[in-house]
């Protein structure tokens, strides 16, 4: 039993945090809002240079051959930075799917940074970053397809988050490359959904922490009644409550990464718990964040909006709260339930 990250994993996380801190500034994000693609090709190349795009690609295909546990801390950093480029979907969702389907050429292109891959969460769902990405992984009935984005018709659907780029996709399944169908297709769809929800959960965790930091900074500097408003208990307790929610969302997210990486039988339940807990933390961070920023929190000018809007967007992406609650409920209330003290790690052992 060792529920910790290794020193290497922590050091890698720290270096990625520093990189994103320097490269993904609020100014650079705002500048991207006004461009059609909303994305930065140079940054994508730099992420590939660091080995990030190919983190889960096997070494034979030019990647680092790491797993979901290695990446979950980095997905958290992508959230903290509100990174617009589709690193989490490409690495955490598309890569394992393509690996399973043996798409070596696409995997090699991911590792070099030549290609990004956008993923559809469920059949008919809007696809984030479909235009920036060279490939799309799409779904129809029980099959999963790989489609060149040039072969699909994309229509931009604007999001409240100016950093998001969502598209409705028209495409012809009969012309597309099948990655899996039948029972294997259904299993692959389920795996994709779990991976995507895990990625969203990790980002929400990072977003929550960033919103706490911004709120602490603002309330430490803003003076009223002759002192910083952050010295008042009413303000402190708002942020303390968010800190509690965030602190207790971390372990469920990391456990979900472990369960997915090891294909545990209750991975779906663990992912849904993680997504629910991280969503709760991040939406509370947004609500309390805007409150302690006062009127400034309601402006376009203050950077809180960048992270708040990403949190609102990801709260509903990769499964609504209702869907995730239903998945946990079926395990907790179902006839096979096995609950109580000592059962937490039963499926791992």
């Amino acid at each position: 039993m060792n529920f910790t990250f290794s020193e290497d994993q922590i050091l890698f996380r720290d270096s990625v945090r520093e990189f994103l801190n320097n490269e993904v500034t609020a100014e650079s994000l705002r500048a991207r809002w006004d461009t059609p693609s909303g994305r930065c090709k140079e940054l994508w190349a730099a992420l590939a240079e660091l080995g990030l795009t190919g983190m889960l690609v096997s070494e034979a295909n030019g990647g680092l051959g790491m797993n979901e546990i290695d990446f979950v801390l980095l997905a958290e950093e992508c959230g903290r930075a509100a990174l617009p480029e589709p690193l989490v979907d490409t690495v955490l969702v598309a890569t394992p799917v393509l690996q399973q389907a043996g798409k070596d050429d696409v995997l090699a292109a991911i590792a070099t940074g030549q290609s990004a891959v956008a993923v559809q969460a469920t059949e008919g769902a809007l696809v984030a970053d479909a235009e920036f990405s060279e490939y799309l992984i799409l779904q129809e009935n029980s099959a999963v397809y790989l489609v060149s984005s040039a072969d699909a018709t994309l229509e931009l659907q604007e999001s409240i988050d100016p950093g998001r780029r969502l598209y409705s996709v028209s495409w012809d399944a009969s012309q597309a490359n099948v990655l899996a169908d039948g029972d294997r297709g259904v299993a692959l769809q389920a795996k994709m959904f779990n991976l995507g929800a895990l990625g969203a959960a990790a980002q929400l965790l990072g977003l929550s922490q960033r919103m706490i930091e911004l709120s602490v900074n603002y309330t430490s500097e803003r003076n009223q009644f002759g002192k910083p408003i952050g010295s008042f208990q009413a303000v402190k307790h708002h942020l303390a409550n968010v800190a509690v929610k965030t602190e207790f969302a971390k372990a469920p997210v990391y456990r979900a990464a472990y369960s997915v990486a090891h294909n545990l039988s209750d991975a779906a339940q663990h992912v849904s718990h993680a997504k629910l807990a991280a969503t709760e933390a991040a939406t509370q961070a947004a609500k309390s964040g805007i409150q302690v920023h006062g009127a400034m929190g309601y402006t376009w000018e203050v950077d809180l909006q960048i992270f708040m809007k990403r949190a609102w967007a990801l709260a509903g992406a990769w499964g609504s709260r209702g869907e995730h609650k239903a998945r946990v409920a079926s395990a907790v209330f179902g006839p096979e339930r096995s609950l109580g003290a000592g059962q937490t790690f039963a499926s791992a052992s």
């Binding site: 602490v216 010295s231 208990q233 303000v235 303390a240 800190a243 509690v244």
Partner: peptide
């Protein structure tokens, strides 16, 4: 406890 969290964990100003 909330005061402790705010001041020691988050680094908010003391009252």
């Amino acid at each position: 406890q909330r005061n402790i969290i705010a001041e020691r964990m988050l680094g908010m100003p003391r009252a």
